[in-house]
Design a protein around this nucleic acid. Structure first.
Lengths: 226, 226
DNA sequence: TAGATTGTTAATCGATTAACAATC
DNA sequence: TAGATTGTTAATCGATTAACAATC
């Protein structure tokens, strides 16, 4: 069989650059599926049973054709004239993203932001469980936040190991961020979500995502002003 | 002159789909420039004088060729063998995004999250000034946060008008979000930054940006797991 | 049936990347 | 000079969009 024939007989999804079930998603597809999931999770909470690609588009700012295209690469999840079943689509996307399970995260920082994060459902709704909150301030250690008790940062390494933690969330002041990022890295965390503005230097095997509300605003403002 | 000639003689930037100084940026370019600006602002704070496209790439996860391409569409800002002057590039990008000025924002919610936002420099660093903090809780009204005093939500409309506020930041619980979004819309705000998880319904002339740390994590986790 | 919305095609546009001459 | 990094080209890949038949 020639390579030409092999290419021609590949499924449409693959010829288009989309993935088969055992291939890695492209960056763009994975990012968009995650956003659909967020909206769907919230829609489910609000008791919505079905949702159309147009509604998903309104909430995610992703073109509705693009949404249908993204989803149809993995199966025919929708019903013509009706839309997508919210609950079914949530579990389909969770499967595709292979994040159907529960993931443990460590939260660093027991200040206002740390408290806000620990008591919100932002992470819990997506299967992320804050298993422990850490701070360097001895005065805060031992105080309760949500259903946790603040622990000293020196316990970090042990907890990361015991609880199989891959994700660390940094909710600390700028000056403390790099030092605590270093501790997270040493403890074995692979993904850091950075709520500070500091530019964090980490080894290549660790990924940093920085929260940047101001970036979104700058960008929104540009389109408002022009 | 034929249309063909007109097209051929257009500057490279325009033929490529990039903009001339009086045209609107594409969505992608505006979003990326905003991210460069965030990193540059922080780099400037850290006393960095020059930065290479590779360094910018490391922090933004945008390909370095793409960064050079984005910037060269507006001028020759870099110095070969050296990189870009941080301070000069900041002001260039601010000019391009037309957000060189100061913008007033209203913050809704004086809970943990509201306090965290008001006392951080996340917004201030990018020219956004929190001119007023609002809450519905009479017990919180009058208490100081940062250099502000919490006001009752009933003052919102007046403040938005007086201070020429275009952006509202919602730092409130899910259940309260839609109601307060309605108040922001009625008061005349055009851009809402939503820290709650609620799906907000707003008129078409208003833009909602929802904070979604969990989306970023889901996405990062996918690439870690595969 | 009539209306709505999916799934899919095809065409176009923008993003990505490697490569490298120019030049600091 | 030697090394580094920009600015730019050209080729490829993925995203976007309009359009519409299929079908619920």
């Amino acid at each position: 069989m020639s390579y030409g024939e092999a290419t021609t007989s590949a499924p449409q999804a693959e010829r288009d650059g989309r993935v088969s079930s055992n291939e890695r998603l492209s960056l763009g597809v994975a990012a968009r599926l995650s956003r659909y999931l967020q909206v769907l999770t919230q829609a489910k909470k609000m008791g919505k049973e079905t949702i159309s690609s147009q509604e998903l588009s309104d909430y995610t700012h992703v073109n509705s054709t693009q949404i249908r295209r993204d989803l149809s690469g993995f199966g025919k999840f929708g019903k013509r004239g009706v839309g997508y079943n919210v609950e079914a689509l949530v579990s389909q996307i969770r499967k595709i993203l292979r994040t159907a399970g529960q993931h443990n995260i460590a939260l660093i920082g027991a200040g206002h932001l740390g408290k806000a994060i620990a008591s919100s459902e932002i992470f819990a709704d997506h299967g992320f469980r804050v298993v422990s909150i850490f701070d360097v301030d001895d005065a805060k250690v031992g105080t309760p936040i949500g259903n946790q008790v603040v622990r000293h940062i020196s316990d970090l390494r042990q907890v990361v190991e015991d609880e199989d933690i891959v994700v660390g969330v940094l909710a600390v002041p700028n000056q403390a961020a790099q030092g605590l990022a270093d501790e997270l890295v040493e403890a074995g965390v692979k993904i850091i979500f950075n709520y500070s503005e500091s530019l964090l230097d980490v080894p290549p095997e660790v990924t940093v995502h920085t929260s940047s509300p101001a970036v979104d605003l700058l960008y929104a403002l540009y389109f408002y002003l022009t």
